[in-house]
Amino acid sequence: MRRRTFLTTLSAAAGVLCTAPAIAAARHYSLDTTQSTVGFETDFGPDKITGSMPVIRADLAIDFRNLAASSVSVALDATAARASFPFAAQALKGPRVLDAATYPSVTFESRAVRREGDEAGIDGLLTIRGVTRPATLHAAIYRQAGTDPGDLSRLTIHLTGALRRSDFGATGWSDLVGDEVRIRIVARIAQVA
């Protein structure tokens, strides 16, 4: 269970490194969009529809000493959303679900980041179809393969959460497709400052 202890290790590492004042401030990261996925899953009768959305922009700042000082701002390209079969992708982008022609992006802006044991809870504002609602993502931080323990320059974050699409007016095909949409994000990030 490398993850279970990793945030603790990071805190310790940050604590050790804290003698340098710059370390205490939030570190800024860029997202490796080619190695990251913003995935979702919803129920479709007895099955699941899965899909993904490309990231347009991601601003990440993580303060390992004081998680509350961390922030995340992400924009996704709804017009390029993918789903596990062609009809689902068309339905997803169409006017009854994301209405990507009118609302080309989906955004998430963090408002509060708090520690949840070895994980972090990120409360923020999620905007879909131009409708903004509070949403919470749970983050687990891993170190990437091939990096040293305590190396904070490259990290992988798993983010999970769920939303009810009806909260955002994305009600199309509600007789066939579930209301709850589960979000699974794998973000591979590299420190920039």
Binding site: F44, G45, P46, D47, F85, F87, L176
Partner: peptide, 8 residues
């Protein structure tokens, strides 16, 4: 029918 991947 209950619509799913198998009978779409």
């Amino acid at each position: 029918m209950e619509v799913g991947l198998g009978n779409l």
